[in-house]
C-alpha cells in the first residue's frame, strides 16, 4: 500500500472505531475490540525491537508487567490515571536501560533466552512479593466506564502504529534495519549499534509500559504477577510473525486475526487457538518469513499480472 493511501485507510478505520461506543451499546463488543487494540499495541511495540532492530526479546512481558504494577499502585493511591500510566512507562524504560546494556551483549538466540530468563525472574519475584489478588476499591468499581478504557486503548494503539510507521521511514529505522541485516557491517559503516538498540528497546518498552498501565486501568481484579506471564510475550511474537515481522501492517493484521480466532475458538475449546497458531507460526517461519503481509503482496502480484509467477 502506498503511504498516502494507507494513511487514509488508517484514519478512516480510527474514526470508525471511535464511533463504535456511540453506536454499539454491547459491552462484549467493546471488550473484544479492547483486546484487539491492546494486542495491536503490544505487538507493534514488540515489533520495534524484533522487526526493526532484529532482536527477539522474549522478556517483553516484564515491561508490560512493570507498567501494570506501577500504574495500578499509583492510580489506586489516588494519582490521575494518565499520570500513573506515564510513570509506569517510565519505570519500564528505566528497567530496560538498566538491563538492556547487559542483555545486548548477547546476540541472536542468546539474547532471546537471556531476556526470557529476565522475564521469568521478574514474574516469579513479583508473584512472591505481591501474592494477593489486586482488586479495585468499591467506589472505583461503581464509577467504572468501559468506554473510557476503550478510547484509551484506541489512542494507544493509534500512537504505536504511528510510531512504528514513522520509525520505518526515518534514519533511525534505517539504522536499526542495518543492524538487523548485519550488525558488524552496520557498526563498520558508522551506525552506533548499541545506542540504536537501546533506543529501539526504550521506545518498545515505553509502549509496553503504557499498555501495561492500560491493563491495570481496565481490569477490576487480577493477580499482580499475571501481566508478567510469558504468555504476553508469546502472543506478541505470534501476532507479529503471523502478520509480518518488520512491517507496520503485519502486527495490525495479525492482532485482528489472532484475537478473533482466539475468541471464536474459546467458545468451545479453550487454548485450542495455541495449537493452530503454534503450527501456523512454524509454517510461517519455515515457508513464508514475511507472514500474512507477504502472502497478501504475493497474491496481489499474482492477480495483477496473470501468468507471471513470482
Amino acid at each position: 500500500m502506498s503511504g498516502r493511501r494507507s494513511r487514509a485507510v488508517g484514519l478512516a478505520a480510527a474514526i470508525a472505531l471511535a464511533a463504535v461506543p456511540l453506536v454499539v451499546r454491547r459491552d462484549d463488543v467493546l471488550n473484544f475490540l479492547f483486546l484487539v487494540l491492546l494486542s495491536v499495541t503490544l505487538a507493534e511495540s514488540w515489533n520495534i525491537v524484533a522487526g526493526y532492530a532484529g532482536q527477539v526479546n522474549l522478556g517483553h512481558a516484564a515491561f508490560f508487567g512493570l507498567g501494570a504494577l506501577t500504574t495500578r499502585a499509583l492510580w489506586v493511591a489516588g494519582a490521575p490515571v494518565l499520570a500513573a500510566m506515564v510513570a509506569g512507562a517510565a519505570v519500564a524504560v528505566v528497567f530496560a536501560l538498566l538491563v538492556g546494556a547487559a542483555a545486548f551483549r548477547l546476540r541472536g538466540a542468546y539474547f532471546a533466552i537471556g531476556t526470557l530468563a529476565l522475564g521469568e525472574i521478574l514474574r516469579i519475584t513479583v508473584g512472591n512479593v505481591r501474592a494477593e489478588i489486586s482488586t479495585l476499591p468499591a467506589a472505583t468499581i461503581a464509577g467504572y466506564r468501559l468506554a473510557h478504557r476503550y478510547y484509551l486503548a484506541l489512542a494507544l494503539a493509534a500512537v504505536s502504529v504511528v510510531v512504528v510507521a514513522a520509525l520505518g521511514g526515518s534514519r533511525l529505522g534505517l539504522g536499526m534495519r542495518a543492524i538487523r541485516e548485519d550488525e558488524e557491517a552496520a557498526e563498520a559503516s558508522g551506525v552506533g549499534a548499541l545506542r540504536l538498540k537501546l533506543l529501539a528497546l526504550s521506545l518498545s518498552t515505553a509502549l509496553a509500559g503504557l499498555a501495561g498501565g492500560l491493563f491495570a486501568y481496565y481490569h477490576i481484579s487480577y493477580y499482580p504477577a499475571h501481566p508478567f506471564s510469558p504468555t504476553w510475550t508469546f502472543d506478541s511474537l505470534l501476532i507479529t510473525f503471523i502478520g509480518g515481522v518488520g512491517t507496520v501492517h503485519g502486527p495490525l493484521l495479525g492482532a485482528v486475526f489472532y484475537v478473533f480466532l482466539k475468541e471464536f475458538l474459546a467458545i468451545r475449546w479453550v487454548d485450542f487457538h495455541l495449537l493452530i497458531f503454534g503450527a501456523l507460526f512454524v509454517a510461517i517461519v519455515l515457508l513464508l518469513p514475511g507472514g500474512l503481509v507477504e502472502a497478501a503482496a504475493r497474491l496481489r502480484a499474482l492477480t495483477r499480472r496473470p501468468g507471471q509467477a513470482c
Binding site: F234, L238, F241, G278, A279, F281, V282, L286
Partner: peptide, 19 residues
C-alpha cells in the same frame, strides 16, 4: 539456523502444550 530453530521450537512448544 540458531534463530530459526528457536522460533520453530517455540511454535512447536505452544502447539504441543495446547495439544
Amino acid at each position: 539456523r540458531v534463530k530459526n530453530s528457536l522460533l520453530v521450537g517455540f511454535g512447536l512448544a505452544l502447539a504441543l502444550e495446547a495439544a
